[in-house]
Amino acid sequence: MNPTVSTANLTLPAVPGPFVQLGRSLAADALKLRRTAALWLTLASGVLPVLLNFCIFYFKGHLLLKPGVDGWAKYASMSWQTAAVLLPLFVVLLTSLVVGVENKAEGWKHLFALPVGRLPVWLSKLLIILGLNALAQVLFVGLLLAAGHLLATLRPELHLQQFAPPVHLLGRLLGRTYLATLGIVGVQYVLGKWQSGFVLPVAAGMAGWVAGLTLLRWEHVGWIPYAGPMLTLLTTPFKPVPGMAMPTVAPHEWYQLLWFGTATVLGYAVLRWRNLA
């Protein structure tokens, strides 16, 4: 049988809207997360700081807490300190692992040969990273509160039950800390996309992390994205301190937003105009 080719073959198909394309990209990217190190890292990162500090307070809490002192404030601030140190490293690894799923499979050429715009593909991965980052941080705060209540039950001599957990403060700190990680997400996302290997973006991220921690006293440290979570913690008093109020958004958090916006827009502009494979 000879194939026949009708003029209908030349009709241009309709293009789905950008939000439909984004929804489809997100559905595909969510599926690709199954059994990935990125997903395990997200869950483990929420648990680790809480578990460490739970053990410290369970076994040595009586040495850390003076009688009559708000144990919740001490417990929450110590847990958050661990988290603030580890958080930039977590974001670096998370971003590289999520982008690495595509890099390892040489999946970009496949994605961009599909009927979907480059912007939905770019945004979808970014939203997945932002979602996992949020999940890890919310999980951390939830577990921190749950572990605090467990401590109060198991170790009543620590007198945690006599104080209210600082839920409001933790909620605000969570929001600001999330904001303070956005610059790292933006920079690492762009690095991960344009460096197909895993090592270089992670090495650059670790260098930034060390620089952020080392230069904490520098007056311009706010411009280093990797210092963001620690700076947010340092500008948050767990106990009332005369003359110190928690800002709604601190200057270094605005810089993070600037890093995030600039990196992701530039990254997309390069993706839009350069050859892909």
Partner: peptide, 30 residues
């Protein structure tokens, strides 16, 4: 591209997923 199917050099596959999940990811995207 919605009327085109392509296989360019080595197929782009996600090793950690099953064959079904690999196809499913592209099906969702399309």
């Amino acid at each position: 591209l919605s009327r085109v199917g392509a296989l360019i050099e080595n197929p782009s596959l996600y090793d950690h997923l099953t064959g079904h999940e690999n196809v499913e990811a592209t099906r969702r995207l399309r």
